[in-house]
């Protein structure tokens, strides 16, 4: 076969529904035998957070950020009709009915298909997120690594 095609996705959003779209495309692209990379920046980093509290020494501001932001994909809100947290509960119910895969499982599925998950280190610093708070199976990089991949990308998305 010819050289594998590449798909890159920048996940900027920390919304459950947008992240779901990103991960469905990532899984689909992996099924297309693309080399897939998802760069998580800003609020998108929350999708990579471990659900359990991690003990990390932080400044006051960073500790506040960590507290306000959702700890992991399961706790993320919707971009629309969030209704103070009721929206995600409703949509998860509907998803179950339609046999759609919940976001945390989509992320695991992506890893099983060798999709590379990357945390943007600059925004990790801004939001005060430590490597210990994020999944263990991810990589870390900056804009140059993203551009390196994206300039060879056949599909490049910003979500």
């Amino acid at each position: 076969m010819t050289e594998a095609k590449k798909t890159t996705i920048v996940l900027f959003s920390g919304d459950y529904d947008k992240a779901m779209a990103a991960y469905i495309i990532a899984n689909g692209a992996a099924a297309y035998d693309h080399e897939v990379t998802i760069f998580h920046t800003f609020w998108g980093l929350n999708a990579l957070r471990k659900p359990e509290k991690q003990s990390v020494a932080k400044g006051k501001l960073e500790a506040m950020f960590a507290k306000i932001m959702p700890r992991g994909a399961e706790r993320m809100g919707l971009s629309n009709m969030n209704f103070l947290g009721l929206g995600p509960k409703l949509i998860k119910k509907v998803m179950k009915k339609h046999n759609a895969v919940p976001l945390p499982e989509l992320i695991d599925m992506a890893r099983e298909q060798d999709v590379r998950l990357i945390g943007c280190t600059m925004t990790m610093d801004l939001l005060g997120l430590d490597e210990k708070e994020l999944r263990d199976d991810i990589e870390y990089a900056g804009v140059a690594a993203y551009l390196g991949e994206a300039s060879e990308g056949n599909v490049n998305l910003f979500i």
Partner: peptide
């Protein structure tokens, strides 16, 4: 009964 993207992943 499975929703997108599961049928394609299973096929692959």
């Amino acid at each position: 009964g499975l929703a997108c993207p599961q049928p394609i992943l299973k096929t692959k």
